[in-house]
């Protein structure tokens, strides 16, 4: 694709990408660096971008990969990696009426946002992509480079984790404050 078109196609995604980056990094400066690097990489690779493929998913994927190789991203992964997530199984069942439901019903959106910010990165990013950026399962699978089945199971666990904000993360470790 001609770089002439990059600005027209990529700039409309700017606000959304920034929001995503800020939620991931939790910091304005880091988010700006991340977005800037994302656009630089995307512009550089724009010639290889295939017309007709999903530019939005492509941009989110660059941003997400950039984040995971960044200092902040690596630090977040070290404190909250979800190794063997499939092995965790569906231990948490959401089929019972939990006190958390009542709690959520009483709490405002600020609580949900706080819980989102406190989520481990792999859960936070999938919730953001699905609920905030409104990407389809197929797009999320492209961004995360995982099969759709993994998207569905990870999303399910992320939602469960989001509804238990006061509890520990799935590895049983307390969530590291630095990732918030």
């Amino acid at each position: 694709m001609d770089p002439e078109f990059f600005e027209q196609l990529a700039m409309p995604l700017f606000d959304q990408l920034y929001n995503f980056a800020h939620w991931l990094t939790g910091d304005r400066t880091d988010a700006e660096d991340l977005v800037q690097e994302t656009y630089a990489k995307a512009l550089k690779g724009f010639r290889s971008f295939q017309q007709g493929t999903n530019l939005r998913a492509w941009m989110y994927r660059i941003l997400r990969n950039t984040f995971h190789t960044s200092r902040t991203g690596l630090a977040a992964q070290n404190t909250s990696s979800l190794e063997e997530e499939e092995a965790q199984g569906n231990a948490v069942t959401a089929h019972t009426v939990t006190p958390e439901l009542l709690l959520l019903q009483q709490e405002d959106q600020q609580t949900v946002l706080k819980a989102l910010a406190a989520l481990p990165v792999p859960y936070r990013e999938i919730i953001l992509l699905c609920e905030v950026e409104e990407l389809s399962y197929r797009e999320i699978a492209q961004v995360l480079d995982v099969p759709i089945g993994t998207v569905m199971s990870r999303l399910s666990r992320a939602r469960t984790a989001l509804r238990q904000p006061q509890k520990t993360n799935p590895l049983g470790r307390p969530i590291d404050a630095r990732t918030l």
Binding site: Y18, N19, H22, Q109, Q110, L113, V132
Partner: peptide, 9 residues
Amino acid sequence: GLRAARGHH
């Protein structure tokens, strides 16, 4: 609840 996260930043 998560709608509030859209355009939050």
